[in-house]
Structure formats: structure tokens, C-alpha cells
Computed example of a mutant assay.
Amino acid sequence: MSKRLELLFTTEAGTSSTIAVDNPREPVDPAAVREAMDDILAADVFHGSNGSLVAKRGARLVERNVETIEIGE
């Protein structure tokens, strides 16, 4: 099982952009996530084809379970 913290932003073009953090420290502190997202916006260091990040859209913790199925040879 793996977990990923996804920070969701809006770009200048109005599109969505996601910054993912693998295996975040748990429990995830919503106040720390908000502060980190504010810092990312203030630093204005992420620029893509849709422009800079301009607003927070949300954050989510995504959990993924992988089960291997033995198929034999």
C-alpha cells in the first residue's frame, strides 16, 4: 500500500495542476498543508504551458493498494 498527498492548484489559464508528495508524514496536518500551499503560491516558482499557479483548489490523500495475481507459467 502506498500513499500520496496531492496538492491541487489552479493555473493562470484556469486549468488544474497537481503537485504530488509520495509517502507523506502522517497524520497529515491540514494547517501545515494550507501553509505549504500558500508558500508555493507566494514563491511563484512553478511555471508551465498554462502559466503560473494562482490559487489553491484543494488537497487530498490518495491511498493505493496493489495486489499481485499469480498467473503461473
Rank of each mutant, 00 (worst) to 15 (best):
A59W: 15
A32L: 10
E73H: 13
E73T: 11
A31S: 10
A20H: 05
V62F: 03
T68K: 10
R4K: 14
A42N: 11
N65T: 11
A13L: 13
L8W: 03
A36P: 00
R57L: 08
D29H: 10
A32F: 08
S49N: 13
T10M: 12
R25D: 10
A43S: 10
G72Y: 14
E63N: 02
M1R: 11
R25C: 07
E12D: 15
E26A: 06
A36K: 04
I69M: 06
I71S: 08
E63K: 01
V62W: 02
A20V: 04
S49I: 13
E70A: 15
V21Q: 07
M37L: 05
T10V: 12
S16I: 11
T10Y: 01
P24V: 01
A43I: 03
P27W: 00
E35K: 09
A36Y: 06
G72K: 14
D38S: 10
S2G: 03
H47I: 08
P24L: 04
V28G: 05
V33M: 10
D22P: 01
F46E: 03
N65P: 00
M37I: 00
G14A: 13
K3Y: 08
L61S: 01
V62K: 14
N50A: 15
V28N: 02
T10D: 04
D44K: 15
L61Y: 05
K56L: 07
K56D: 01
E12L: 10
L53A: 05
L8E: 09
R34K: 15
A42Y: 03
P24Y: 04
D38P: 02
E12R: 15
